[in-house]
């Protein structure tokens, strides 16, 4: 069976994430929130703006910090999801290859409200090209800020790199423990995957495109 994205989206959406009587949402072994995209965007782009105002060359530092947050997100969130009971029940029965781990996780992402992730090409163990329609980062940026010269989807870029690292640099199929040591092992390796956003709604493109490759960028 190949990855049936719609079935995964409907199954994950059907879990009906909502706060329990403590006002918390335990799911995938994590605590979820249904958070406000504007909040993430305001605090992230405020950090970017603050760094640029201090010195224009600090833009790269701000970008690196925000992408790192995306990598940490993917390590724990994607990692937690791909080793969860929910994954075993819904996605794992469809998996036939290591590449299906990537496609399955992208399908789950498409139930998280982040916008539509679509795999354009996946070269096993080497390269992933993915587009994002309605990226919450870029749409928020377009609404509130002038056109950007650089891409603005930091969470997505970090997330895509992290996904490739979990599947190919590490071995998510072996159910690793998501420790600090494991993070360093797969994200600080010379062969780690890095991602760059090659197109972005915030720069006037029709959608966002992210490329993850082994070569550090």
């Amino acid at each position: 069976m190949a990855i049936h994205e719609r079935a995964i989206i409907e199954a994950v959406s059907g879990l009906g994430f909502a706060g329990n009587e403590e006002g918390l949402i335990p799911a995938f072994g994590l605590y979820l929130t249904k958070h406000f995209a504007d909040y993430y965007n305001r605090i992230s782009y405020a950090l970017l703006g603050d760094f640029i105002r201090r010195a224009p060359e600090l833009e790269e530092d701000a970008r690196a910090l925000l992408i790192e947050a995306g990598r940490v997100c993917s390590f724990h969130t994607f990692g937690g999801i791909m080793t969860s009971v929910e994954w075993d029940a819904v996605v794992r029965p469809m998996i036939e290859s290591r590449e299906d781990w990537v496609l399955g996780m992208v399908a789950v992402v498409n139930a998280l409200g982040w916008g539509r992730w679509e795999v354009k090409s996946l070269e096993a163990n080497e390269r992933l090209v993915l587009t994002v329609h309605d990226s919450y980062e870029a749409t928020g940026y377009v609404r509130d800020y002038p056109r950007a010269k650089e891409p603005r989807c930091y969470l997505a870029a970090g997330g895509v790199a992290g996904l490739m690292n979990l599947v190919y640099q590490g071995d998510i199929t072996a159910r690793p423990t998501f420790s600090e040591a494991y993070y360093l092992e797969i994200f600080r390796s010379p062969r780690t995957f890095a991602a760059r956003e090659t197109r972005c709604l915030a720069m006037g493109d029709s959608c966002c495109e992210i490329v993850a490759e082994r070569d550090p960028i």
């Binding site: 995938f28 994590l30 724990h76």
Partner: peptide, 23 residues
């Protein structure tokens, strides 16, 4: 009318720490 996105505590507190460290 506003976008809502699912994220877990790992991202939420790490991003907040990034903002606190940076600003």
């Amino acid at each position: 009318g506003r976008r809502v996105v699912l994220h877990c505590h790992h991202y939420n507190v790490f991003l907040q720490r990034t903002i606190e460290d940076g600003l």
